[in-house]
């Protein structure tokens, strides 16, 4: 099933994307309203929450170029050393730019 990208078609596609995204935004909280929150569920939720971050970042580090890997490593080191997010993030971004400027492409 295809939709032609006429003006009406594009508006329909945007509406579909909005709806699908809305389902994902509302769905988690909606489903949880049927679950009794006991210590075990609470523990699941908390571990799952920080695992979301790891599950986003680790494949990003492995699939990216040397610049993205360097950015994540530098952010991690500075964050662990200083506990200050903004300097850690800024240094990470700067290192990604520098590594790419220096032309390091492979790992």
């Amino acid at each position: 099933m295809t939709v032609e990208t006429t003006t009406a078609g594009i508006l329909a596609l945007i509406a579909v994307m909005t709806l699908v995204t809305l389902v994902t935004r509302f769905g988690g909280a909606f489903l949880m309203s049927f679950v009794t929150i006991n210590p075990r569920i609470e523990s699941f939720i908390n571990t799952m929450a920080s695992s979301v971050l790891i599950a986003i970042i680790v494949p990003m580090a492995f699939s990216g170029d040397a610049g993205s890997l360097a950015a994540l490593v530098v952010t991690a080191v500075i964050m662990l050393a200083t506990k200050k997010p903004l300097p850690a993030i800024a240094a990470g971004i700067a290192v990604a730019g520098l590594v790419r400027y220096a032309g390091v492409t492979g790992l």
Binding site: T21, A29, I45, A49, V52
Partner: peptide, 8 residues
């Protein structure tokens, strides 16, 4: 991932 984020 929003599903998990909202649930959390």
């Amino acid at each position: 991932r929003h599903l998990l984020m909202g649930a959390s």
